[in-house]
Amino acid sequence: MSNVIHIEEEENELLAKVEEISGETVTLCEQCGICTTSCPMAEEMDFTPAGIMHAVKLGDKNVLDSKAIWICASCFTCTVRCPRGIDLAKVTEALRQIHLRKNKDHVNLEEVKEEEQEENLPPIALVSALRKFTG
């Protein structure tokens, strides 16, 4: 992977799309990183929450293929801490939506069903995962 990001006109599409779906102004982000250290899942992520914000601002589409956006459980801790008042949970949701609206589900119902029987999953776990991870 090259360490040069070529910023071309078309790449601003990502920012525009994310801002449209989320209703948030991503360019307000000042990269303080408070979201990252507030995030209980950050250690599992390939893009830190602040990294996600930065990537969206730059139009770096690699973020769409990140693991991080699926690890986020919308716990809103980043949202209540962001000193700029950005609702990051909505930004991450927008990135997921960009996938899901192309009919690309993140979870396979067939696999889950088996597991459910085995584990006796509570219905909210299943329904919420399906709501979050399917289009």
Binding site: C32, I34, T36, T37, C39, T77
Partner: peptide
């Protein structure tokens, strides 16, 4: 170090303060 901690924790035994922060220049916590 360029980063803003989200919260601080106190070590229950030593009472030292644990700071977790993203070094936003390296993206490491």
């Amino acid at each position: 170090i360029r980063g803003r901690p989200g919260e601080l924790q106190e070590d229950p035994e030593t009472k030292k303060v644990i700071v977790r922060v993203e070094d936003t220049l390296t993206r490491k916590i």
